[in-house]
Design a protein around this nucleic acid. Structure first.
Lengths: 243, 243
DNA sequence: CAGTGGTCTAGACCACATC
DNA sequence: ATGTGGTCTAGACCACTGA
């Protein structure tokens, strides 16, 4: 069906690229099932093994999830699918910081500053929505989050968020804008708490905090969300495994 | 050759497991070539495709490196193979902190404290070697490192390190003890600089620093090295990509 | 029961390395 | 010229799912 160049690059990569494009176009929405390997093999005029390699590569990257006996599904933040995939912050007792205890401080229209504009590849002063919230554990504030979403990619986010108060932001982006977050990039540093952070986190001004500046990318590789997360020393830490 | 249970678990996983064991046993040392897929297929009495899947899984985990037309090689820190695999620290200008500018402060016999003992699964007060060193960039101290190696896994490390002054510690572990580091686990937090750190990093006492506590594991999954890395705020940061 | 993904085989051609 | 890994095909059997 799709015209594939015979010698350009491996067929399974071309198939993978095309399937990703079709997922992005919304042909199969998150949580929905893809055609079987044999049906896709018919569509592309290739053998089932080649299709399998393409799908396995997508599964590897987390774009789809495979279940023997059932089928291949577009990954969704819906349901219980890897809810903590991007959460590397832990409270000092070694538990992952849960998302259920969240207190939203403010949701307001805001313009991108230079840092945000560069991160999201938009114009400085471009309009958007800023969300400030706290993550708590047993009533104690553990993390301070400041989030920016551009008006261009997430129109009317402010109104919708204020209205619906979504629990999971990434689930909200997926449902509302068909933006599936598949990759986040974080840059961490230590610094002293700002006045606002100190007040909200109930710590002394100047206390060392761990700051993570995050850029979240959608399935298409587009930067969608800018976020800064700060956690006070002695109450939170960050874990990472390499290799 | 090797007796494989027919219905236990996928053959390619059994083959992978056995090949890993053989690499660990030193049958092929880091940097050396493995037999070709066809030769291994003969050895195991399986088809080349099954061997390929086993080797691809190992390559995925970084245990071996494949080169078309040449062969499959046991991963080594030797040569130019991914030298910065475990280095997530960057200087503030966005450059990765190089390993070439290193100043060793001290190498001495030391006993494991409770933290180290727990991390390396050894007895408290077990003997070992402690290394303290600085990473510099253009002469400016960027990172402070304190490293512990147990005497059990790395006998006589102190004498050898003082004598040979190895550039790369992981390369040293590989050459001296056949311990190939393939996985590191880091736990980050912000805190104030200690007196010693402040002095060596040339910062004011109490300045916020980013601390990474690292446990490095060998190919066999054994914890080998305990290390704490600290970098001063504004001079260094840490990068991480998830997904 | 039929359909799915998971595994395994056996063969083929290619581009690239080495000699 | 030969051997290597990289790709692709076509067929097979299995375990699991769901109607």
């Amino acid at each position: 069906m799709g015209v594939l160049k015979p010698t350009a690059k491996p067929l399974y990569r071309q198939v993978k690229q095309d399937l990703v494009k079709r997922v992005l176009a919304g042909e199969w929405k998150p949580g929905h099932i893809l055609p079987s390997e044999f049906k896709l093999a018919d569509q592309y005029g290739l053998s089932q093994g080649t299709i399998r390699k393409a799908i396995e590569a997508m599964a590897q990257e987390g774009l789809v999830t495979r279940q023997a006996g059932k089928g291949t599904f577009v990954t969704s933040h819906e349901g219980d699918y890897r809810p903590f995939r991007f959460h590397q912050f832990y409270s000092q007792d070694g538990k992952r910081i849960a998302t259920d205890e969240t207190r939203t401080i403010s949701v307001r229209a805001h313009q991108a500053d230079e840092t945000i504009a560069k991160a999201l590849r938009i114009e400085p002063d471009a309009p958007g929505t800023e969300i400030v919230r706290l993550r708590l554990g047993n009533g104690i504030p553990l993390l301070y989050e400041r989030i920016f979403l551009s008006e261009e990619l997430c129109p009317a986010a402010q109104a919708i968020i204020e209205n619906e108060k979504p629990v999971s932001l990434y689930l909200f982006l997926e449902r509302q804008y068909n933006l599936l977050i598949t990759r986040v990039q974080e840059q961490l540093q230590a610094r002293s708490a700002t006045f606002e952070e100190a007040k909200l986190l109930d710590i002394d001004g100047g206390t060392p905090v761990l700051e993570a500046e995050r850029i979240a990318h959608s399935l298409g590789g587009e930067p969608v969300e800018w976020r800064v997360i700060t956690g006070p020393s002695k109450r939170t830490h960050y874990r990472n495994i390499i290799g």
